[in-house]
Amino acid sequence: MTENASGFNADAGSLSAELRRKILAGEYRHDERLPAERSLARQFGCSRGTVRSAMEKLEELKLIERRVGSGTFVNHHATADETEIANITSPLELIDVRMGMEPQIARLAVINATAVNLRKLENSLLELENLPADCSPESFTVADQSYHLALAECTGNALMIWLCQHIHEVRSHRQWSSMKDKILKPAQIRIYNRQHRSIYEAIVSRDIETAEQATIEHLETARNDLIGAAR
């Protein structure tokens, strides 16, 4: 992982994580035009190709919108109600919501996923698996959210996709930062990625029961890790 003089790790995962942080923190506001690729490359000490890859990731997460001939604009606009809910929702409460929703996402993904959906899900999984061993918690979080959003898209259900996006927004708030730093160590990331692959393989095999069970196992692991980090 290349590090520039300012200490920033100049890879696409770290850059997308940093830009995501700025967008969610309101440093880049809704409908604001982002700096050009050349300016961002100079600012963060990386190549334009790295900037382009980071932008593609943010576009997948629906945080930015590219307008031909105009540039790239922020597509995130948190309302006061959303921010308040995010601030009062504990990590364990969010896991409870995910427990109620994500096994159903896995079930619908088995039933409805198209070949295009499965290719996107596989690409998201490979991105997770190919992250450097010393990747930052934020870099993993961005790739993890991309995987889970691709999984939601496999359902073909617009409301499921919308709910998944809002869950990601809750996970971006400050009470999660210390938890991520405690939990997302290399050994635990490897466990999560094995579980991600198990979910993917069950969906590709059109195995509803295994997909649901693999999802439950993944969420139970996350719950136990959160409880351990809170002690």
Results as ranks from 00 to 15, higher is better:
208 I>E: 12
21 R>G: 08
99 M>A: 06
230 A>H: 00
137 P>F: 01
205 S>E: 15
95 I>L: 09
137 P>D: 00
60 E>I: 06
218 H>N: 09
218 H>I: 01
106 A>V: 00
45 G>E: 08
168 H>N: 08
177 S>A: 15
53 S>F: 13
111 I>N: 07
42 R>A: 15
198 S>R: 12
27 E>H: 01
81 D>N: 11
146 S>N: 15
192 Y>K: 03
93 E>Y: 04
153 E>S: 02
29 R>H: 15
153 E>F: 02
178 S>E: 15
14 S>W: 00
72 T>P: 05
124 S>V: 02
69 G>C: 07
77 H>G: 04
131 L>D: 01
129 E>M: 09
155 T>P: 12
8 F>M: 06
6 S>I: 02
123 N>M: 09
96 D>A: 10
103 P>Y: 11
86 A>C: 08
175 Q>P: 14
59 E>Q: 15
29 R>C: 10
30 H>R: 02
7 G>P: 10
73 F>R: 01
51 V>A: 02
109 A>K: 09
185 K>V: 09
216 I>M: 13
184 L>T: 02
78 A>G: 08
29 R>W: 04
37 E>F: 14
54 A>M: 15
108 L>C: 03
73 F>C: 05
112 N>R: 13
199 I>N: 01
95 I>K: 07
92 L>T: 12
115 A>S: 15
208 I>D: 05
182 K>Q: 14
20 R>Y: 15
149 L>Q: 12
191 I>N: 04
144 D>W: 14
147 Y>C: 00
116 V>L: 05
112 N>W: 12
